[in-house]
Computed example of a mutant assay.
Amino acid sequence: MATPSALRNSRSQARLSLEWTDGEHQQISHTRLRGACPCSQCKAARLRGAITVVNEGVRLERIALQGYGVQLVFSDGHERGIYPWDYLRELGARNG
């Protein structure tokens, strides 16, 4: 499992920047992160075909390390998702 060597949250640019130990650098928008929340409620909604429109003004407020990933807390109050490192890397690659 790859872990990032650095995480930077830019509220003004609404982006999370990740630098990986292999030198790769990725940026993921806050709206993308919120829309891809891996919590059980959000996953279930996506499986039912529900399309959740994420407000463009949503911001990542807090990052809590969880060992295998991070818990992200958003300005809309959502804080249930824990994003494993591999999932974040995949989101960053698809963000392209």
Rank of each mutant, 00 (worst) to 15 (best):
residue 1 M to R: 12
residue 2 A to I: 15
residue 2 A to P: 05
residue 5 S to H: 02
residue 6 A to V: 13
residue 7 L to G: 02
residue 9 N to A: 15
residue 9 N to C: 15
residue 11 R to C: 10
residue 14 A to V: 08
residue 15 R to E: 10
residue 16 L to Q: 03
residue 16 L to A: 04
residue 17 S to M: 15
residue 18 L to T: 03
residue 18 L to S: 02
residue 19 E to L: 11
residue 20 W to Y: 08
residue 21 T to Y: 07
residue 21 T to N: 13
residue 23 G to L: 08
residue 25 H to N: 14
residue 25 H to P: 00
residue 26 Q to D: 12
residue 26 Q to R: 13
residue 27 Q to P: 03
residue 28 I to D: 03
residue 30 H to S: 09
residue 32 R to K: 15
residue 36 A to M: 14
residue 36 A to S: 15
residue 37 C to Q: 04
residue 39 C to G: 02
residue 40 S to Y: 05
residue 41 Q to H: 14
residue 43 K to C: 04
residue 45 A to W: 07
residue 46 R to A: 09
residue 46 R to N: 05
residue 47 L to H: 05
residue 48 R to G: 04
residue 49 G to V: 04
residue 49 G to A: 02
residue 51 I to Q: 09
residue 55 N to A: 13
residue 58 V to R: 01
residue 58 V to C: 00
residue 60 L to D: 01
residue 61 E to S: 03
residue 62 R to Q: 12
residue 65 L to Q: 12
residue 66 Q to W: 04
residue 66 Q to G: 12
residue 66 Q to P: 02
residue 68 Y to R: 07
residue 69 G to L: 10
residue 70 V to H: 05
residue 70 V to Y: 11
residue 70 V to P: 00
residue 72 L to V: 15
residue 74 F to N: 04
residue 76 D to P: 11
residue 76 D to T: 13
residue 77 G to Y: 08
residue 80 R to Q: 15
residue 81 G to H: 01
residue 82 I to F: 00
residue 82 I to R: 00
residue 83 Y to P: 01
residue 84 P to Q: 04
residue 84 P to R: 10
residue 85 W to P: 05
residue 86 D to A: 08
residue 87 Y to V: 00
residue 88 L to T: 01
residue 90 E to Y: 02
residue 90 E to T: 04
residue 91 L to W: 08
residue 92 G to H: 09
residue 93 A to G: 04
residue 94 R to C: 01
residue 94 R to T: 06
residue 95 N to T: 14
